[in-house]
């Protein structure tokens, strides 16, 4: 069934590669893992900024 298969190209861009549903699922899982990793890093920077600023936020002068 071509409808549920992803068509992409080989490394050299020559031969088309057909992904099975299982391969598509694994690719999706890998992509989600990368996205979650990036979100976690953003969250870590945000939390560490709060930790580093601490009470100094309240003491700032405008």
């Amino acid at each position: 069934m071509t409808e549920d298969k992803d068509m992409t190209t080989d490394e050299d861009g020559a031969a088309p590669v057909t992904l099975t549903p299982e391969q598509q699922a694994r690719l999706r899982r890998r992509n989600i893992a990368v996205a979650l990793g990036l979100i976690a890093m953003v969250g870590l920077f945000f939390a560490m900024t709060l930790v580093r600023l601490g009470g100094n936020v309240a003491d700032r002068t405008y």
């Binding site: 031969a15 590669v17 099975t20």
Partner: peptide, 21 residues
Amino acid sequence: ASPRGLKGATPGYMEADIADY
């Protein structure tokens, strides 16, 4: 890892799951 000259074959690394990384 590369397909053994088969047109349209799937490279092995498409099999990689999170556990493999």
